[in-house]
């Protein structure tokens, strides 16, 4: 059993968590809202916000967990992928803490933490499984054998699913971030009203493509804007994205002969995706692990959780010369 202080600053959320014996004692997330006015994240502003607030957020996380820094056995921190300037803040705050309090450092890959995040709320680790990682920056299908044994079996060739939501929302003049806005609008829309392309749906591979959809939406809006209900457009676009995600996840589970499917990443908060996956999993008798919303978005709890899994597996801590690694995992096929 170990108590871990975890730090996550890969994008625009500053998060610090305390995880002890695989339980999340605190998970503080400070979301930066100043980017909304620009319609996307401004890296320099994100980095400035991280450095301003990181120590106070660590205070909140420790206080909520009723721990002091002396109670902590190890420090875990995201060192990639993400925005380099943002990652550097979390990593160097972590290095300073490790040096000051003589704690071991566990650098954690953000996507790998997302992959295992669905297990935070499940006491048993049901492996093997298929994990669908969907967020603003990533869309991948992962075959998980066990802790630290996984294989990316498919990734997006162009845009991430979250980008498709954000760009659609931007083109429709809805605002940012687009995912929750489209989700909300779709509830009163007809998902079958318009047909949008399902990228690579005919292919047997598990790769995704959302750039064709983006173009189709743009052309559709140029032609029809003002004459169609926004709710129907939102629902139809969402349906196109969700169909591909669900279809490939189910197919992967069959092909890799697993009994469990889990989802992770910001887009896994999408209500239609959850609903359709639930129906399909029930039909095919798969277990579906749906993380609660706080673990779908970027959070430090998942960073601490994976660090503790690794410590239990005997993984050795890193030296303090570990660097950030901003590049995303990309599968070329």
């Amino acid at each position: 059993m170990a108590t871990i202080l975890a730090i996550e600053t890969s994008c625009d959320d500053t998060s610090v968590a305390v995880v002890s014996d695989f339980k999340v004692l605190s998970n503080q997330v400070s979301s930066q809202t100043l980017h909304d006015q620009y319609g996307g994240i401004v890296p320099e502003l994100a980095s400035r916000e991280h450095v301003k607030g990181i120590a106070q957020i660590a205070d909140l996380a420790l206080r909520q967990a009723h721990k002091t820094i002396q109670d902590i056995d190890a420090i875990a921190v995201t060192n990639g992928p993400g925005l380099a300037g943002s990652l550097l803040v979390g990593l160097h705050f972590a290095k300073g803490l490790c040096l000051r309090y003589a704690k071991p450092l566990f650098p954690i890959n953000h996507i790998e933490a997302h992959i295992y995040s669905a297990y935070i709320e499940h006491s048993t680790l049901e492996f093997p499984s298929i994990c669908l990682v969907v967020s603003g920056g990533h869309t991948s299908l992962v075959f998980i054998r066990s802790v630290d044994q996984f294989e990316i079996i498919g990734s997006t060739r162009d845009d991430a699913a979250g980008e498709a939501f954000d760009k659609t929302a931007k083109m429709m003049g809805l605002g940012y971030p687009g995912g929750p806005l489209i989700d909300a609008l779709s509830r009163t829309g007809d998902p079958k009203k318009f047909h949008f392309p399902r990228g690579l749906s005919g292919s047997n591979a598990f790769d995704f493509s959302f750039s064709g959809l983006k173009t189709a939406v743009r052309l559709f809006l140029e032609k029809n804007e003002g004459t169609v209900r926004k709710n129907d457009v939102a629902a139809s676009v969402q349906e196109a994205i969700v169909d591909v995600l669900v279809d490939k996840s189910i197919r992967a589970a069959h092909q890799y002969d697993v009994k469990t499917i889990c989802i992770a990443g910001g887009v896994s908060a999408n209500s239609r995706l959850r609903e359709k996956l639930l129906v399909q999993c029930k039909r095919s008798k798969f277990n579906l692990l749906l993380p609660s919303l706080q673990y779908c978005v970027d959070n430090a709890a998942m960073i601490g959780f994976l660090a503790e899994l690794r410590m239990q597996n005997g993984t050795q801590p890193s030296s303090l010369n570990v660097t950030v690694n901003p590049k995303p995992i990309r599968m070329t096929s």
Binding site: H50, V51, I54, A55, A58, D59, L62, R63, T68, I69, L88, V89, G90, L91, H92, F93, A94, K95, G96, L97, C98, L99, R100
Partner: peptide, 10 residues
């Protein structure tokens, strides 16, 4: 960031 880590105390 490094200095904030080094200085840190509750």
């Amino acid at each position: 960031s490094f200095a904030k880590g080094l200085c840190y105390g509750l």
